[in-house]
């Protein structure tokens, strides 16, 4: 029988947070080099310019379509990049890289989620350009008759929605990538769903559904009334924050997974109810 001479104290320092921050920095750098992100960003810019130059068929058309069209390709690019990033330790039927390292799968998931700040910043940039350019140009035509205006501009809260939507889609993509062994089918299915969630934005502008849309398109019009309603937009932004936190929670396997999922669902539900309460419809 051998006597154990080498022994450590049971007071082991927890996982080094500076290592997770450093990993997030590396993941962000890699995210910034993803081709799909840059293709999405370029196409988003192109679509925004095309949409801005279009002649409107009806009042409010450009106001409604510009923001969703300007972010659709970027959301698809972020989704592809997010799934691939989240799937890195799951593919090829191999064990995760350095499975024995102190930074486990959850630490890596946090870092990958943090790297989504890169495409979120891209979305913020796109929306900032739209916000500034539309104000310089004098705004958009919205409404009809006495309530018509040709100087409507998107509020900060409306412009925040695409950036938050990118965060939601990215967080969901990382969670999906971590959950699945094969990323290919998830990528194809996700792209189709994104087309319906963002590209066919008017589907989500109906009664009740607008509270849970990925992009809530203003002005909302029911019963011949068209209203840009900022309080509803603010609560919808909160709903998106809840949704992003929910997917971050789903991408984890250990604490604080349950707390994050519970808290984010509560926030999302409260935000949906708040929209129904404050909405004029």
């Amino acid at each position: 029988m051998t006597v154990v001479l080498e022994s450590l104290t049971s007071e082991t320092p927890p996982t080094d947070r500076s290592a997770i921050v450093e990993l997030a920095r590396i993941e962000s750098f890699r995210m910034s080099r993803r081709v799909s992100i840059w293709i999405g960003f370029a196409l988003s810019g192109l679509l925004a310019m095309t949409e801005a130059r279009n002649v409107e068929d009806w009042s409010s058309q450009k106001y409604q379509s510009l923001v969703p069209m300007a972010v659709l390709p970027l959301t698809i690019g972020v989704y592809v990049a997010g799934v691939r990033s989240g799937n890195r330790d799951r593919s090829h039927r191999r064990p995760p890289l350095a499975e024995e390292a102190p930074l486990d799968g959850d630490a890596r998931a946090w870092a990958r989620q943090a790297s989504l700040l890169v495409p979120v910043a891209m979305a913020v940039l796109l929306m900032a350009v739209i916000g500034v350019a539309s104000r310089i140009e004098g705004g958009f035509e919205v409404g009809a008759g006495l309530s018509r205006t040709d100087s409507a501009v998107h509020s900060v809260f409306e412009l925040a929605q695409p950036a938050l939507a990118v965060a939601v889609i990215g967080a969901a993509a990382v969670a999906i990538g971590r959950a699945l062994r094969r990323s290919g089918p998830a990528i194809v299915l996700g792209m189709v769903l994104l087309f319906f969630a963002v590209g066919v934005y008017w589907l989500w502008n109906d009664h009740l559904v607008y509270t849970t849309a990925l992009l809530q398109v203003q002005p909302m019009g029911f019963d011949r009334r068209e209203v840009i309603h900022t309080p509803t937009v603010i609560f919808h932004d909160l709903y998106l924050i809840g949704l992003a936190a929910l997917f971050v929670g789903l991408s984890l396997r250990q604490a604080p997974r349950r707390r994050l999922i519970g808290g984010s669902i509560a926030l999302a539900v409260v935000a949906v109810v708040a929209q129904l309460v404050v909405s004029p419809f």
Binding site: A19, L97, A101, A107
Partner: peptide, 27 residues
């Protein structure tokens, strides 16, 4: 060193070992 190491194929050798170094808390 496992039998199948699960290396990230798009990384360079340096990037990969550097990445693992961070996973091992060499910050």
């Amino acid at each position: 060193l496992p039998q199948e190491a699960g290396l990230y194929r798009n990384f360079t050798a340096y990037e990969l070992v550097d990445y693992v170094a961070v996973l091992k808390e060499i910050t």
